[in-house]
């Protein structure tokens, strides 16, 4: 039977074991291996994300890769230790004895409080810098205001990809409804259900909603903003890659929420101007709209096993319409 002094001896013995050289060497090798795997995971992380189509996405992906690496390191470290115990430190079948009565170790406890503190300061700082550089909205001013006169993001000069920070065009008006998107270009008096924006130029938006909260979300740009009815929200980002992407409603908005999607086309300045001019010539016509079409079909009584729903807003009248279906980028 161990008594008080016995415990003491045991404890010092444990401490000595911690500083055993072979242990230190073994631990360093394991740590190095963990570091290598974590670094590799961090690199893999880029591949899990959609194409980098905006300057913001470059920043966000770097941040995610960094956090993946740190996370992998912690995960492998902890589960590795647990697995080792589970495999090698099992009690023999009829062994009723207890393990060593170690009740704590102040040094160890201080270390594992300090390390997470440092880690989160690190992650927090990197995140803060990333957010600051993205300048979707102003970081330290209430940018979302009812009477927003200034454009947040303007004062920032170092926005990556913002090639002409001084150039100021009227923002594109994003009008969201249950359940359709409409983009209005004030300088050309054009409205469209497909969003067209020129590449390598800061794109500015004024987001509004007519009914409930919607979310403006383009995964390829890594940007998202809820649209609050009754407010005008100024929002901006910089597309850097030509192509066709999906724009999705990200804030649950009722029955046909899932179909409230459309396409974004990022194109060269020339093509963009051509498209705009072309659209300006086209007369207004009702757009293709999944929600109102399915609602009408259900209302005709053919098949509906559902519950009552809010009537969708009629399909918007636009100069340019495109299929809402996914185009397989």
């Amino acid at each position: 039977m161990t008594n008080q002094t016995g415990n003491q001896e045991q404890r010092t013995r444990d401490l000595k074991r911690v500083f055993n050289w072979r242990r230190v060497l073994g631990l360093s090798v394991l740590t190095a291996a963990n570091l290598a795997i974590s670094y590799w995971m961090g690199q893999q992380a880029y591949g899990w994300l959609p194409p980098q189509a905006s300057s913001e996405s470059v920043l966000v992906d770097k941040l995610f890769s960094f956090m993946t690496a740190v996370g992998t390191f912690i995960f492998i470290g902890v589960t590795g230790t647990l697995l080792y115990s589970m495999i090698y430190q099992r009690a023999a079948k009829y062994d009723p004895t207890d393990g060593p009565p170690i009740e704590g170790n102040t040094k160890l406890e201080i270390i594992w409080t300090a390390v997470p503190i440092m880690l989160i300061i690190w992650i927090g700082t990197v995140s803060f810098q990333t957010y600051d550089q993205m300048s979707l909205l102003e970081p330290f001013a209430p940018a979302v205001m009812k009477t927003a006169g200034t454009l947040p993001g303007d004062q920032k000069v170092a926005v990556p990809g913002d090639l002409e920070p001084t150039e100021r065009e009227m923002p594109i008006e994003v009008r969201s409804r249950q359940w359709s998107w409409e983009f209005y270009y004030p300088e050309a008096d054009v409205s469209s259900t497909e969003l067209h924006i020129p590449v390598d130029k800061r794109a500015r938006f004024k987001l509004t909603s007519e009914d409930v909260i919607h979310g403006f979300y383009v995964p390829a740009f890594r940007v998202k903003q809820d649209i609050i009815p009754g407010r005008e929200i100024n929002f901006s980002f910089t597309p850097i890659r030509e192509g066709r992407y999906r724009l999705r409603d990200s804030q649950y908005s009722g029955t046909y929420f899932a179909s409230n999607q459309t396409n974004v086309v990022v194109e060269s300045e020339d093509n963009y101007q051509k498209w705009l001019a072309n659209a300006a010539q086209t007369p207004l016509s009702p757009a293709e709209n999944v929600a109102s079409e399915s609602f009408d079909k259900a209302a005709e009584g053919s098949i509906s096993l559902g519950w009552a729903t809010v009537r969708p807003a009629p399909a918007p009248m636009v100069n340019y319409t495109s299929s809402e279906k996914d185009t397989y980028e």
Binding site: E56, V60, M67, I123, S127, G215, K224
Partner: peptide
């Protein structure tokens, strides 16, 4: 405990605003 650890790490990722803006909802 292991699933919690995994979730805690993705939780910290979500706490990072710029990343959360991408994956929120």
């Amino acid at each position: 405990l292991t699933t919690f650890l995994f979730a805690g790490i993705t939780g910290i990722m979500l706490a990072s605003t710029p990343f959360d803006i991408h994956v929120n909802n």
